[in-house]
Write a protein that binds this DNA or RNA. Structure first.
Lengths: 152, 152
DNA sequence: CACCCTCCGTGGACGCGATCGACCGGAGCC
DNA sequence: GGCTCCGGTCGATCGCGTCCACGGAGGGTG
């Protein structure tokens, strides 16, 4: 993970479809060298995936909600997690410090679907209560932040 | 936005680096046709960007926090937003219904940096109070959900 | 100091993919 | 029926991805 690797990661975070040849020009190496470096970044887990970022409204997911979950004292956290994992509406799931064990980001098409989702969450064994906030608008999301070299 | 477009979007959400030729095979069109469709999806804003998804720890951003912001009654929301936008640590920013006007997702390297960020947020004109939750672990994030055809 | 090993890069070669232009067929409209 | 437009295929060309052989720098060892 040297300076060139960081440049590559930063370039690919900005545009995942850059060709190896283009990356090579940007970092001043040959295309095969870049190919190998990127391959290592992928297989070492630094780069997890390449994703197209889509306007949610365009695919019928106009409603974004953030849902805090308080667990039952008796519940099994892993079971709860597994149940959440089965719900495709839940785009992100964080295990949090604090009263609310989980914070979920969910996306659905309509408020009615959100209601159904909340009902399903509330009924999930191990879930004591939920608290839902609705995003009126997304100002920005997953903005890549510049990589700073390790403070050595 | 027909069924083929939806397939293309779904394929690219799963792997943004698929070649046009591969996409073409998957959807049963020729490569130039796919090229044109994807170009239209990009320029119409359905596809906003292609990003590499990176393990945050690998680039020195091991601390994830979710921060709710309560606005001052006198403050100007746009100014507050602009200030947030200048802070690279804030990866996502939602304008919310409820007492907390904003919910921010921030990523920093250390708890000390998080502390500094919260101080800066608290001092921002227009911000009345902040409430920070720390993510102990990210179970998953930005998981693409299958696209369902418009309910027609 | 010479030697060797390893790592990481370059350059060349070759096949495939990206991309452009020409053409074509069906839908909608005079 | 014939025009036009839209959106596709086909074919050709050029650049890119990817494999391979080679080479130089750096470090350990006799």
């Amino acid at each position: 993970m040297d300076a060139i690797d960081r440049s590559l990661v930063e370039l690919l975070r900005g545009n995942a479809r850059l060709s190896y040849a283009e990356l090579a020009r940007q970092v001043g190496l040959s295309a095969p060298a870049v190919h190998e470096r990127v391959g290592k970044l992928e297989s070492s887990g630094v780069i997890r995936a390449y994703r197209a970022e889509v306007e949610p409204e365009a695919i019928g997911l106009g409603v974004t909600a953030l849902i805090g979950i308080v667990e039952d004292s008796g519940g099994d956290t892993d079971d709860v997690l597994e149940t959440f994992r089965q719900m495709p509406e839940i785009e992100s799931c964080y295990f949090m410090a604090g009263v609310e064990s989980f914070l979920l980001k969910a996306r659905v098409g309509t408020i009615a679907e959100l209601e159904q989702l909340i009902v399903r969450l509330s009924r999930t064994p191990g879930v004591a209560s939920t608290r839902t906030g609705i995003a009126l608008s997304t100002k920005w999301e997953n903005r890549p932040q510049p990589i700073e070299p390790p403070a050595s």
